[in-house]
Design a protein around this nucleic acid. Structure first.
Length: 491
RNA sequence: CGGAGUAUAGCGUAGUCAGGUUAUCGCGCCACAUUUGGGAUGUGGAGGUCAAAAGUUCGAAUCUUUUUACUCCGACCA
Protein backbone atom coordinates (compact mmCIF):
# COMPACT_ATOMS: atom_id res chain seq x y z
CA UNK A 1 0.00 0.00 0.00
CA UNK A 2 1.68 3.16 -1.12
CA UNK A 3 1.52 6.56 0.43
CA UNK A 4 -0.17 9.19 -1.60
CA UNK A 5 0.58 12.61 -2.87
CA UNK A 6 -2.77 13.99 -3.83
CA UNK A 7 -3.68 16.82 -6.12
CA UNK A 8 -6.87 18.47 -7.07
CA UNK A 9 -7.06 16.32 -10.14
CA UNK A 10 -5.97 12.93 -8.98
CA UNK A 11 -4.19 10.61 -6.69
CA UNK A 12 -0.63 10.44 -8.01
CA UNK A 13 0.06 7.19 -6.22
CA UNK A 14 -1.64 5.43 -9.09
CA UNK A 15 1.37 5.91 -11.28
CA UNK A 16 4.43 7.45 -9.66
CA UNK A 17 5.11 4.21 -7.88
CA UNK A 18 5.72 2.62 -11.27
CA UNK A 19 8.08 5.18 -12.66
CA UNK A 20 9.61 7.55 -10.14
CA UNK A 21 9.94 6.01 -6.72
CA UNK A 22 8.44 3.37 -4.58
CA UNK A 23 8.15 2.86 -0.89
CA UNK A 24 9.11 -0.79 -1.19
CA UNK A 25 11.06 -0.92 2.00
CA UNK A 26 8.24 0.67 3.92
CA UNK A 27 6.92 -2.72 4.96
CA UNK A 28 9.98 -3.14 7.14
CA UNK A 29 9.61 -1.08 10.26
CA UNK A 30 13.27 -0.19 10.50
CA UNK A 31 13.30 1.67 7.22
CA UNK A 32 9.78 2.98 7.44
CA UNK A 33 9.38 6.08 5.38
CA UNK A 34 12.47 5.64 3.24
CA UNK A 35 12.06 5.73 -0.49
CA UNK A 36 13.60 3.77 -3.31
CA UNK A 37 14.29 6.20 -6.13
CA UNK A 38 13.91 4.38 -9.43
CA UNK A 39 16.11 5.12 -12.46
CA UNK A 40 13.69 7.52 -14.10
CA UNK A 41 13.19 9.48 -10.89
CA UNK A 42 16.89 9.49 -10.15
CA UNK A 43 17.70 10.73 -13.64
CA UNK A 44 15.53 13.78 -12.96
CA UNK A 45 17.31 14.32 -9.65
CA UNK A 46 20.66 14.11 -11.44
CA UNK A 47 19.57 16.82 -13.87
CA UNK A 48 18.60 18.97 -10.91
CA UNK A 49 21.94 18.31 -9.25
CA UNK A 50 23.88 19.24 -12.35
CA UNK A 51 22.05 22.51 -12.80
CA UNK A 52 22.31 23.50 -9.14
CA UNK A 53 25.93 22.45 -8.89
CA UNK A 54 26.85 24.68 -11.80
CA UNK A 55 25.02 27.60 -10.20
CA UNK A 56 26.88 27.03 -6.93
CA UNK A 57 30.22 26.95 -8.70
CA UNK A 58 29.36 30.04 -10.72
CA UNK A 59 28.88 31.84 -7.42
CA UNK A 60 32.27 30.77 -6.11
CA UNK A 61 31.44 27.63 -4.14
CA UNK A 62 33.27 24.31 -4.09
CA UNK A 63 32.15 20.84 -3.09
CA UNK A 64 33.45 18.76 -0.18
CA UNK A 65 32.24 15.83 1.86
CA UNK A 66 31.84 15.41 5.61
CA UNK A 67 31.07 12.33 7.73
CA UNK A 68 27.69 10.68 8.01
CA UNK A 69 28.15 10.18 11.74
CA UNK A 70 28.31 13.01 14.23
CA UNK A 71 29.55 12.45 17.79
CA UNK A 72 26.80 13.28 20.24
CA UNK A 73 28.99 15.84 22.00
CA UNK A 74 29.40 17.91 18.80
CA UNK A 75 25.73 17.86 18.32
CA UNK A 76 24.88 19.33 21.67
CA UNK A 77 27.16 22.35 21.44
CA UNK A 78 24.65 24.77 19.95
CA UNK A 79 21.70 24.89 22.32
CA UNK A 80 18.78 25.84 20.08
CA UNK A 81 20.10 23.64 17.28
CA UNK A 82 20.10 20.51 19.40
CA UNK A 83 16.69 21.38 20.77
CA UNK A 84 15.33 21.63 17.25
CA UNK A 85 16.66 18.30 16.06
CA UNK A 86 17.01 16.13 19.17
CA UNK A 87 13.61 14.54 18.78
CA UNK A 88 14.23 13.18 15.32
CA UNK A 89 17.72 11.72 15.42
CA UNK A 90 18.77 8.18 14.60
CA UNK A 91 21.52 7.13 17.02
CA UNK A 92 24.27 4.55 16.59
CA UNK A 93 25.09 2.85 19.87
CA UNK A 94 26.95 -0.36 18.89
CA UNK A 95 29.43 -1.39 16.25
CA UNK A 96 29.15 -5.17 16.11
CA UNK A 97 26.71 -8.05 15.76
CA UNK A 98 27.13 -11.64 16.88
CA UNK A 99 25.39 -14.98 16.56
CA UNK A 100 22.65 -15.34 19.15
CA UNK A 101 24.04 -17.78 21.78
CA UNK A 102 20.45 -18.92 22.37
CA UNK A 103 20.18 -19.96 18.75
CA UNK A 104 18.21 -18.26 16.08
CA UNK A 105 19.58 -15.27 14.29
CA UNK A 106 21.98 -12.45 14.89
CA UNK A 107 21.91 -10.11 17.86
CA UNK A 108 23.66 -6.89 18.84
CA UNK A 109 26.89 -7.60 20.68
CA UNK A 110 26.39 -5.74 23.95
CA UNK A 111 30.14 -5.76 24.58
CA UNK A 112 30.57 -3.63 21.47
CA UNK A 113 28.90 -0.55 22.90
CA UNK A 114 30.28 2.78 21.70
CA UNK A 115 31.71 5.00 24.40
CA UNK A 116 30.08 7.96 22.78
CA UNK A 117 26.97 7.52 20.68
CA UNK A 118 27.03 8.69 17.08
CA UNK A 119 24.20 10.66 15.57
CA UNK A 120 23.31 9.96 11.95
CA UNK A 121 23.38 13.49 10.56
CA UNK A 122 20.02 15.22 10.32
CA UNK A 123 22.02 18.20 8.97
CA UNK A 124 25.75 18.82 9.11
CA UNK A 125 26.28 22.19 10.77
CA UNK A 126 27.93 20.73 13.84
CA UNK A 127 30.45 18.42 12.26
CA UNK A 128 31.26 20.99 9.62
CA UNK A 129 31.82 23.77 12.12
CA UNK A 130 33.95 21.47 14.21
CA UNK A 131 36.05 20.99 11.06
CA UNK A 132 36.06 24.66 10.07
CA UNK A 133 37.63 25.48 13.42
CA UNK A 134 40.82 23.90 12.14
CA UNK A 135 40.59 25.52 8.72
CA UNK A 136 40.11 29.13 9.72
CA UNK A 137 42.80 31.21 11.43
CA UNK A 138 42.98 34.42 9.47
CA UNK A 139 40.78 36.75 7.46
CA UNK A 140 42.85 35.42 4.54
CA UNK A 141 41.07 32.07 4.97
CA UNK A 142 37.73 33.76 4.44
CA UNK A 143 35.27 33.54 2.96
CA UNK A 144 34.97 29.75 3.09
CA UNK A 145 32.32 28.73 0.57
CA UNK A 146 31.61 25.00 0.67
CA UNK A 147 28.75 22.81 -0.45
CA UNK A 148 28.09 19.15 0.26
CA UNK A 149 25.89 16.69 -1.66
CA UNK A 150 24.72 14.11 0.83
CA UNK A 151 21.95 12.13 2.41
CA UNK A 152 20.53 12.99 5.82
CA UNK A 153 18.20 11.19 8.20
CA UNK A 154 15.39 12.71 10.21
CA UNK A 155 13.34 10.23 12.20
CA UNK A 156 9.97 11.84 11.65
CA UNK A 157 6.98 10.48 13.50
CA UNK A 158 5.09 10.52 10.30
CA UNK A 159 6.58 10.48 6.84
CA UNK A 160 5.17 11.51 3.53
CA UNK A 161 6.63 10.34 0.26
CA UNK A 162 8.96 12.94 -1.32
CA UNK A 163 7.96 15.65 1.12
CA UNK A 164 9.08 14.25 4.45
CA UNK A 165 10.94 10.98 4.08
CA UNK A 166 13.06 9.56 6.89
CA UNK A 167 16.13 9.61 4.66
CA UNK A 168 16.48 12.15 1.89
CA UNK A 169 19.08 13.39 -0.55
CA UNK A 170 20.05 17.04 -0.54
CA UNK A 171 22.78 19.58 -0.79
CA UNK A 172 23.81 21.75 2.11
CA UNK A 173 26.01 24.79 1.73
CA UNK A 174 27.98 26.03 4.74
CA UNK A 175 29.85 29.27 4.48
CA UNK A 176 32.00 31.35 6.80
CA UNK A 177 32.55 35.11 6.44
CA UNK A 178 34.48 37.91 8.09
CA UNK A 179 31.52 40.24 8.44
CA UNK A 180 27.81 40.04 9.13
CA UNK A 181 27.05 42.09 6.00
CA UNK A 182 28.92 39.64 3.82
CA UNK A 183 27.15 36.67 5.40
CA UNK A 184 23.74 38.25 4.95
CA UNK A 185 24.62 39.00 1.32
CA UNK A 186 25.58 35.34 0.87
CA UNK A 187 22.31 34.20 2.44
CA UNK A 188 20.34 36.42 0.09
CA UNK A 189 22.43 35.44 -2.91
CA UNK A 190 21.76 31.75 -2.34
CA UNK A 191 18.07 32.36 -1.88
CA UNK A 192 18.14 34.03 -5.27
CA UNK A 193 20.03 31.09 -6.75
CA UNK A 194 17.33 28.75 -5.47
CA UNK A 195 14.53 30.94 -6.75
CA UNK A 196 16.26 31.16 -10.12
CA UNK A 197 16.62 27.40 -10.30
CA UNK A 198 13.11 26.54 -9.19
CA UNK A 199 11.50 29.08 -11.50
CA UNK A 200 13.69 28.78 -14.58
CA UNK A 201 14.53 25.08 -14.50
CA UNK A 202 11.63 23.51 -12.66
CA UNK A 203 9.12 26.05 -14.03
CA UNK A 204 7.66 26.43 -10.55
CA UNK A 205 6.95 30.02 -9.46
CA UNK A 206 8.01 30.86 -5.92
CA UNK A 207 7.56 33.57 -3.32
CA UNK A 208 10.79 34.70 -1.71
CA UNK A 209 10.45 35.62 1.91
CA UNK A 210 11.60 35.49 5.51
CA UNK A 211 10.33 32.99 8.05
CA UNK A 212 8.63 34.13 11.24
CA UNK A 213 10.64 33.48 14.41
CA UNK A 214 8.46 30.47 15.07
CA UNK A 215 9.32 28.77 11.78
CA UNK A 216 12.99 29.69 11.85
CA UNK A 217 15.76 27.08 11.53
CA UNK A 218 17.12 25.86 14.85
CA UNK A 219 20.24 27.92 15.42
CA UNK A 220 19.61 30.64 12.84
CA UNK A 221 19.25 34.39 13.29
CA UNK A 222 17.18 34.69 10.13
CA UNK A 223 15.73 32.09 7.78
CA UNK A 224 15.01 33.04 4.19
CA UNK A 225 12.83 30.72 2.14
CA UNK A 226 11.09 30.16 -1.14
CA UNK A 227 7.49 28.98 -1.02
CA UNK A 228 5.48 27.50 -3.88
CA UNK A 229 1.84 26.63 -4.28
CA UNK A 230 0.86 23.14 -5.41
CA UNK A 231 -2.10 22.25 -7.61
CA UNK A 232 -4.20 21.29 -4.61
CA UNK A 233 -3.81 24.72 -3.03
CA UNK A 234 -1.33 23.72 -0.35
CA UNK A 235 1.99 25.48 0.07
CA UNK A 236 5.35 23.76 -0.07
CA UNK A 237 8.62 25.13 1.26
CA UNK A 238 11.06 24.52 -1.58
CA UNK A 239 14.33 25.75 -0.16
CA UNK A 240 15.84 27.67 2.74
CA UNK A 241 18.86 29.88 3.25
CA UNK A 242 19.89 30.71 6.79
CA UNK A 243 21.87 33.56 8.25
CA UNK A 244 23.41 31.88 11.28
CA UNK A 245 25.08 34.92 12.78
CA UNK A 246 27.93 33.90 15.08
CA UNK A 247 25.97 31.17 16.83
CA UNK A 248 27.93 28.23 15.45
CA UNK A 249 31.24 30.10 15.48
CA UNK A 250 30.78 30.71 19.19
CA UNK A 251 29.59 27.17 19.89
CA UNK A 252 32.61 25.70 18.07
CA UNK A 253 35.04 28.50 18.88
CA UNK A 254 35.82 29.46 15.31
CA UNK A 255 37.78 32.73 15.43
CA UNK A 256 39.98 34.50 12.94
CA UNK A 257 42.65 37.15 13.14
CA UNK A 258 41.24 40.26 11.48
CA UNK A 259 43.18 42.75 9.38
CA UNK A 260 43.26 44.99 12.40
CA UNK A 261 44.89 42.25 14.44
CA UNK A 262 42.00 41.31 16.72
CA UNK A 263 40.39 37.91 17.24
CA UNK A 264 36.82 37.76 15.96
CA UNK A 265 34.19 35.09 15.58
CA UNK A 266 33.24 34.34 11.97
CA UNK A 267 29.79 34.89 10.53
CA UNK A 268 27.98 31.91 9.00
CA UNK A 269 25.30 30.84 6.57
CA UNK A 270 23.80 27.52 5.58
CA UNK A 271 21.38 26.69 2.81
CA UNK A 272 19.81 23.60 1.33
CA UNK A 273 17.37 22.01 -1.06
CA UNK A 274 16.39 18.36 -1.15
CA UNK A 275 14.60 15.62 -3.04
CA UNK A 276 11.50 17.38 -1.77
CA UNK A 277 11.91 19.40 -4.97
CA UNK A 278 10.90 16.24 -6.84
CA UNK A 279 7.64 16.40 -4.92
CA UNK A 280 7.25 20.04 -5.90
CA UNK A 281 7.85 19.15 -9.54
CA UNK A 282 5.26 16.39 -9.51
CA UNK A 283 2.64 18.36 -7.62
CA UNK A 284 3.07 21.47 -9.74
CA UNK A 285 2.85 20.12 -13.26
CA UNK A 286 1.54 16.57 -13.35
CA UNK A 287 -1.86 15.69 -14.73
CA UNK A 288 -4.08 12.64 -15.01
CA UNK A 289 -1.84 11.16 -17.70
CA UNK A 290 1.20 11.16 -15.45
CA UNK A 291 4.33 13.17 -14.90
CA UNK A 292 5.10 16.36 -16.80
CA UNK A 293 8.80 17.25 -16.80
CA UNK A 294 9.99 20.68 -17.91
CA UNK A 295 12.31 20.27 -20.92
CA UNK A 296 15.34 21.67 -19.08
CA UNK A 297 15.13 18.87 -16.50
CA UNK A 298 13.94 16.04 -18.70
CA UNK A 299 16.53 13.25 -18.85
CA UNK A 300 15.14 12.54 -22.31
CA UNK A 301 13.63 15.53 -24.09
CA UNK A 302 12.41 13.83 -27.22
CA UNK A 303 11.35 10.27 -27.91
CA UNK A 304 10.84 8.89 -31.39
CA UNK A 305 8.34 6.07 -31.83
CA UNK A 306 8.40 4.13 -35.10
CA UNK A 307 5.22 2.77 -36.65
CA UNK A 308 5.69 0.10 -39.25
CA UNK A 309 4.63 -3.22 -40.72
CA UNK A 310 7.19 -5.97 -41.13
CA UNK A 311 10.99 -5.95 -41.23
CA UNK A 312 11.18 -3.96 -44.45
CA UNK A 313 8.95 -1.26 -43.02
CA UNK A 314 11.02 -1.11 -39.86
CA UNK A 315 14.22 -0.64 -41.84
CA UNK A 316 12.77 2.20 -43.86
CA UNK A 317 11.31 4.01 -40.87
CA UNK A 318 14.47 3.51 -38.82
CA UNK A 319 16.65 5.02 -41.48
CA UNK A 320 14.71 8.27 -41.33
CA UNK A 321 14.31 8.15 -37.57
CA UNK A 322 18.05 7.82 -37.06
CA UNK A 323 18.63 10.81 -39.32
CA UNK A 324 16.35 12.81 -37.04
CA UNK A 325 18.27 11.54 -34.01
CA UNK A 326 21.51 12.82 -35.52
CA UNK A 327 20.02 16.21 -36.32
CA UNK A 328 18.62 16.65 -32.83
CA UNK A 329 21.82 15.52 -31.14
CA UNK A 330 23.67 18.15 -33.14
CA UNK A 331 21.50 20.70 -31.35
CA UNK A 332 22.26 19.19 -27.94
CA UNK A 333 18.76 17.84 -27.61
CA UNK A 334 18.56 14.54 -25.75
CA UNK A 335 16.64 12.09 -27.86
CA UNK A 336 15.74 8.42 -27.63
CA UNK A 337 14.71 6.28 -30.56
CA UNK A 338 12.52 3.54 -29.10
CA UNK A 339 12.96 0.79 -31.64
CA UNK A 340 11.76 -2.02 -29.38
CA UNK A 341 9.55 -4.50 -31.18
CA UNK A 342 8.30 -5.89 -27.89
CA UNK A 343 5.81 -3.05 -27.32
CA UNK A 344 3.21 -1.58 -29.61
CA UNK A 345 3.16 2.11 -30.56
CA UNK A 346 0.07 2.87 -28.50
CA UNK A 347 1.69 1.32 -25.47
CA UNK A 348 4.77 3.47 -25.98
CA UNK A 349 2.72 6.65 -26.37
CA UNK A 350 1.07 6.03 -23.02
CA UNK A 351 4.33 5.02 -21.36
CA UNK A 352 6.21 8.17 -22.35
CA UNK A 353 3.32 10.36 -21.33
CA UNK A 354 3.39 8.69 -17.94
CA UNK A 355 7.10 9.44 -17.73
CA UNK A 356 6.58 13.06 -18.72
CA UNK A 357 8.85 13.15 -21.79
CA UNK A 358 8.23 16.66 -23.22
CA UNK A 359 8.03 15.80 -26.92
CA UNK A 360 7.06 12.65 -28.77
CA UNK A 361 7.73 12.14 -32.44
CA UNK A 362 5.79 9.43 -34.28
CA UNK A 363 7.06 8.35 -37.66
CA UNK A 364 5.48 5.77 -39.92
CA UNK A 365 5.53 4.67 -43.53
CA UNK A 366 2.73 7.12 -44.23
CA UNK A 367 5.07 9.93 -43.14
CA UNK A 368 7.92 8.66 -45.26
CA UNK A 369 5.72 9.12 -48.31
CA UNK A 370 4.69 12.66 -47.40
CA UNK A 371 7.95 13.82 -45.80
CA UNK A 372 6.30 14.60 -42.48
CA UNK A 373 6.23 13.44 -38.86
CA UNK A 374 3.67 13.72 -36.11
CA UNK A 375 4.77 15.70 -33.07
CA UNK A 376 2.98 15.62 -29.72
CA UNK A 377 3.77 17.90 -26.82
CA UNK A 378 3.29 16.59 -23.29
CA UNK A 379 2.20 19.81 -21.61
CA UNK A 380 -0.90 20.41 -23.74
CA UNK A 381 -1.17 16.93 -25.29
CA UNK A 382 -1.60 18.71 -28.63
CA UNK A 383 -0.48 16.97 -31.81
CA UNK A 384 0.63 18.44 -35.11
CA UNK A 385 2.10 17.18 -38.35
CA UNK A 386 5.20 18.97 -39.54
CA UNK A 387 7.68 18.73 -42.38
CA UNK A 388 10.64 16.53 -41.67
CA UNK A 389 13.10 19.01 -43.18
CA UNK A 390 12.89 21.62 -40.47
CA UNK A 391 12.31 19.25 -37.59
CA UNK A 392 15.39 20.16 -35.55
CA UNK A 393 14.62 23.87 -35.46
CA UNK A 394 10.98 23.19 -34.82
CA UNK A 395 11.69 20.94 -31.86
CA UNK A 396 14.27 23.29 -30.43
CA UNK A 397 11.70 26.05 -30.41
CA UNK A 398 8.98 23.78 -29.10
CA UNK A 399 11.11 22.76 -26.12
CA UNK A 400 11.46 26.42 -25.19
CA UNK A 401 7.75 26.95 -25.65
CA UNK A 402 6.93 24.05 -23.35
CA UNK A 403 9.32 25.30 -20.68
CA UNK A 404 7.75 28.76 -20.81
CA UNK A 405 4.21 27.48 -21.00
CA UNK A 406 4.64 25.30 -17.90
CA UNK A 407 5.91 28.25 -15.91
CA UNK A 408 3.21 30.58 -17.21
CA UNK A 409 0.51 28.07 -16.35
CA UNK A 410 1.85 27.53 -12.84
CA UNK A 411 2.30 31.27 -12.32
CA UNK A 412 -1.27 31.96 -13.39
CA UNK A 413 -2.51 29.27 -11.03
CA UNK A 414 -0.48 30.68 -8.14
CA UNK A 415 -1.63 34.24 -8.76
CA UNK A 416 -5.25 33.19 -9.01
CA UNK A 417 -4.88 31.29 -5.75
CA UNK A 418 -3.50 34.24 -3.80
CA UNK A 419 -6.01 36.42 -1.99
CA UNK A 420 -6.12 39.20 0.56
CA UNK A 421 -8.03 38.73 3.78
CA UNK A 422 -9.00 41.68 5.94
CA UNK A 423 -10.70 39.79 8.72
CA UNK A 424 -10.23 36.51 10.53
CA UNK A 425 -13.51 35.17 9.15
CA UNK A 426 -12.39 36.02 5.66
CA UNK A 427 -9.10 34.18 6.21
CA UNK A 428 -10.91 31.06 7.40
CA UNK A 429 -13.38 31.23 4.54
CA UNK A 430 -10.62 31.60 1.92
CA UNK A 431 -8.64 28.72 3.39
CA UNK A 432 -11.64 26.44 3.46
CA UNK A 433 -13.14 27.34 0.14
CA UNK A 434 -10.19 28.22 -2.07
CA UNK A 435 -6.98 27.19 -0.37
CA UNK A 436 -3.88 28.88 -1.67
CA UNK A 437 -1.98 31.80 -0.19
CA UNK A 438 -3.84 34.30 1.93
CA UNK A 439 -2.20 37.65 2.51
CA UNK A 440 -3.22 39.25 5.79
CA UNK A 441 -2.07 41.56 8.56
CA UNK A 442 -0.44 39.98 11.59
CA UNK A 443 0.65 41.60 14.83
CA UNK A 444 4.04 39.88 14.77
CA UNK A 445 3.56 37.84 17.94
CA UNK A 446 4.18 34.14 18.40
CA UNK A 447 0.95 33.80 20.38
CA UNK A 448 -1.23 35.03 17.52
CA UNK A 449 0.64 32.91 15.00
CA UNK A 450 0.12 29.77 17.06
CA UNK A 451 -3.52 30.44 17.77
CA UNK A 452 -4.23 30.92 14.09
CA UNK A 453 -2.33 27.71 13.38
CA UNK A 454 -4.31 25.78 15.98
CA UNK A 455 -7.63 27.07 14.80
CA UNK A 456 -7.13 26.99 11.01
CA UNK A 457 -4.15 24.66 10.44
CA UNK A 458 -2.65 27.49 8.39
CA UNK A 459 0.88 28.68 9.10
CA UNK A 460 2.71 31.84 8.17
CA UNK A 461 4.63 30.68 5.15
CA UNK A 462 6.75 33.79 4.95
CA UNK A 463 6.97 37.52 5.09
CA UNK A 464 7.56 38.27 1.39
CA UNK A 465 10.79 40.11 0.63
CA UNK A 466 9.17 42.47 -1.83
CA UNK A 467 6.38 43.32 0.59
CA UNK A 468 5.03 46.82 0.43
CA UNK A 469 4.53 48.42 3.81
CA UNK A 470 0.98 49.40 4.67
CA UNK A 471 -0.71 50.20 7.95
CA UNK A 472 -3.36 47.78 9.05
CA UNK A 473 -4.73 45.79 11.93
CA UNK A 474 -3.91 42.20 12.80
CA UNK A 475 -6.83 40.08 11.66
CA UNK A 476 -6.70 38.07 14.86
CA UNK A 477 -5.81 40.48 17.64
CA UNK A 478 -6.70 43.81 16.04
CA UNK A 479 -3.34 45.23 17.07
CA UNK A 480 -1.55 47.52 14.62
CA UNK A 481 0.50 45.93 11.82
CA UNK A 482 2.79 47.42 9.21
CA UNK A 483 2.60 44.77 6.52
CA UNK A 484 0.78 41.68 5.33
CA UNK A 485 2.22 38.19 5.63
CA UNK A 486 1.41 35.05 3.68
CA UNK A 487 -0.71 32.38 5.32
CA UNK A 488 -1.40 28.93 3.86
CA UNK A 489 -2.03 25.36 4.75
CA UNK A 490 1.23 23.65 3.97
CA UNK A 491 2.84 20.27 3.51
C1' C B 1 2.01 7.43 21.75
C1' G B 2 -3.91 8.09 21.16
C1' G B 3 -8.28 7.14 17.57
C1' A B 4 -10.07 4.46 13.23
C1' G B 5 -9.19 0.93 9.45
C1' U B 6 -6.65 -2.82 6.62
C1' A B 7 -3.69 -7.50 5.66
C1' U B 8 -5.97 -13.15 0.18
C1' A B 9 -0.55 -14.34 -6.53
C1' G B 10 3.96 -8.94 -8.80
C1' C B 11 -0.45 -5.19 -8.41
C1' G B 12 -5.70 -4.47 -7.50
C1' U B 13 -9.59 -7.53 -5.55
C1' A B 14 -14.30 -11.38 -4.42
C1' G B 15 -15.27 -14.63 -0.65
C1' U B 16 -15.35 -13.51 6.08
C1' C B 17 -21.47 -11.51 8.92
C1' A B 18 -23.98 -17.27 8.09
C1' G B 19 -17.14 -22.59 8.49
C1' G B 20 -18.06 -27.40 3.75
C1' U B 21 -15.25 -29.76 -3.58
C1' U B 22 -9.42 -27.86 -6.54
C1' A B 23 -9.94 -19.89 -3.05
C1' U B 24 -12.93 -15.53 -7.29
C1' C B 25 -12.15 -11.98 -10.93
C1' G B 26 -9.22 -8.14 -13.52
C1' C B 27 -4.34 -6.22 -14.75
C1' G B 28 0.48 -7.96 -15.30
C1' C B 29 3.73 -12.40 -16.60
C1' C B 30 4.99 -16.89 -20.21
C1' A B 31 3.98 -19.60 -25.22
C1' C B 32 1.80 -19.53 -30.07
C1' A B 33 -1.02 -17.12 -33.87
C1' U B 34 -3.10 -12.85 -36.01
C1' U B 35 -1.77 -7.73 -35.31
C1' U B 36 1.04 -2.66 -35.04
C1' G B 37 -1.10 5.70 -36.55
C1' G B 38 -3.41 5.90 -28.77
C1' G B 39 -1.97 1.14 -23.44
C1' A B 40 -4.36 -5.05 -29.43
C1' U B 41 -7.21 -9.81 -29.96
C1' G B 42 -7.74 -15.05 -29.56
C1' U B 43 -6.21 -19.77 -27.55
C1' G B 44 -3.34 -22.12 -24.00
C1' G B 45 -0.21 -21.76 -19.50
C1' A B 46 2.51 -20.47 -14.92
C1' G B 47 1.99 -18.13 -10.33
C1' G B 48 -1.19 -18.72 -3.43
C1' U B 49 2.35 -21.46 3.46
C1' C B 50 -5.39 -16.53 2.51
C1' A B 51 0.20 -11.54 7.47
C1' A B 52 2.12 -14.92 11.75
C1' A B 53 1.20 -18.18 15.92
C1' A B 54 -1.99 -20.81 19.05
C1' G B 55 -6.99 -22.52 19.81
C1' U B 56 -12.28 -24.37 18.65
C1' U B 57 -14.08 -28.04 14.93
C1' C B 58 -14.92 -34.10 11.36
C1' G B 59 -13.49 -29.70 8.50
C1' A B 60 -11.01 -22.74 9.13
C1' A B 61 -9.38 -17.41 4.37
C1' U B 62 -14.10 -17.47 7.32
C1' C B 63 -15.05 -18.34 14.50
C1' U B 64 -11.74 -17.15 19.23
C1' U B 65 -7.11 -15.29 21.39
C1' U B 66 -2.37 -13.25 20.92
C1' U B 67 1.31 -11.04 17.92
C1' U B 68 3.23 -8.29 13.72
C1' A B 69 3.03 -4.87 9.81
C1' C B 70 0.94 -1.10 6.96
C1' U B 71 -2.68 3.04 5.82
C1' C B 72 -5.54 7.32 7.34
C1' C B 73 -6.60 11.06 11.26
C1' G B 74 -4.33 13.35 15.64
C1' A B 75 0.24 14.37 18.49
C1' C B 76 5.20 15.57 16.04
C1' C B 77 7.55 18.03 11.82
C1' A B 78 14.42 24.18 11.04
Amino acid sequence: MSKSITSKTQDYSKWYNDIVVEADLADHSAVRGCMVIKPHGYAIWEKMQQALDKMFKDTGHVNAYFPLFIPKSFFSKEASHVEGFAKECAVVTHYRLKNDPNGGGIVVDETAKLEEELIVRPTSETIIWNTYKGWIQSYRDLPLLINQWANVVRWEMRTRLFLRTAEFLWQEGHTAHATAEEAVAETEQMLNVYADFVENWMAVPVIKGIKSANERFAGAIETYCIEALMQDGKALQCGTSHFLGQNFAKAFDVKFASKEGGQEFVWATSWGVSTRLMGALIMSHSDDNGLVIPPKLAPTQVVIVPIYKGDEGFKKVSETALQIVTKLKAKNITVKYDSRDTQRPGWKFAEYELKGIPIRVAIGERDLASGTVEIARRDTLAKETISINDIDNHIEKLLNDIQENLFAKALKRTQESTHNADSYDELKKLLDEKGGFVSAHWDGTKETEEKIKDETKATIRCIPLNNKLEDGKCIYSGKPSKQRVLFARAY
